[in-house]
Design a protein around this nucleic acid. Structure first.
Lengths: 162, 162
DNA sequence: CTCTTTTCAGAGTAATTTAGTCAACTATAT
DNA sequence: ATATAGTTGACTAAATTACTCTGAAAAGAG
């Protein structure tokens, strides 16, 4: 299992999609604004997510993306695997030849770690996250900021901290 | 937690040390041969391991490295942290400002994953690994190969174990 | 003292990966 | 038609990884 920012971006974006998953499809421009991910990078990510059957796309004006499955069926694991080729933590990709012809000393250790991570990430779905309170709160804030931007209100975000 | 081959090399090397942890210090040339890691790279790794107090060094002929602590006190986690700067899995390093001024949607998710991995890697020590059967078998084979190289003898120990 | 074996320190580097950008499409609603 | 939105693939700058190279310095053996 690979753990990169790419995978995390993908999860953030997918969760955004799950949170706004009503009738109308969500376009990437909105997700880009809310989640602070460049549009072109999102396009790249969603291309992969679509090919893995996690989202479906609707082209043209009013188009965008929608979850292709129930949010409870989409685990964090599936999202991360969709965008990041799974790199194995062992040196040999499950083969037993990590070291010349014999498996390395720590072969089983890394396999165990792999299993462990997978278990955790497979145990959490987008649906569950949507129902979590703290997630909902953050999402509401993000939506509020978007609204403010759209209306061109004088309120500059005043991001003194960074 | 960062998961790199560097960390895996370090664990392999440290386990080698633990397996051969008798009176005499072990030099890196031997570990290099047994674990198939370049000598200069090992030097780099052990420099860090020493600075973190996991090994102690003896210079000069007959010198080498020794575990600075009991093998049961050295967890896999400690080894990996010694050589790889811990990169945080969240975007903000535990701060709450992953996204401008609010924490990102998935902040807690990554923190949880971090905790999970740490728990696993902290739950396993070099001592425990040394006592595991499959590890011992691999180690014996590695030693046998080393011996063969040194003596240039034809007498293969015929290690028909499994 | 000198030779050899070892660790110690840090600079340098080639390859790979990451995190994107850019440009040129295609499909569809109005 | 035209504007909106997804689609594709090539390209790239920056960072990271996984090392190597050089040249010490310490310590024991002869």
């Amino acid at each position: 299992m690979k753990l990169t920012t790419k995978g995390r971006y993908a999860v953030n974006a997918m969760l955004d999609l799950a949170l706004h998953n009503d009738k109308a499809p969500i376009n990437l421009t909105d997700i880009s604004a809310r989640q602070d991910i460049s549009l072109t990078y999102l396009e790249q990510l969603f291309s992969k997510l679509r090919k893995k059957g996690l989202v479906e796309s609707i082209r043209g004006p009013g188009g965008g993306y929608r979850l292709a499955l129930d949010a409870d069926e989409i685990t964090i694991m599936r999202v991360m695997y969709a965008v990041d080729e799974p790199i194995d933590v062992t040196r040999c990709g499950g083969q037993q030849n990590c070291m010349g012809d014999v498996r390395c000393l720590t072969h089983d250790l890394w396999l165990g770690l792999n299993r462990h991570i997978a278990e955790y990430l497979n145990g959490i779905s987008l649906g569950e996250m949507v129902r979590m309170n703290n997630v909902k709160q953050v999402a509401d804030r993000q939506d509020a900021i978007m609204l403010k931007d759209v209306t061109h209100m004088a309120a500059t975000p005043s991001d003194a901290t960074h």
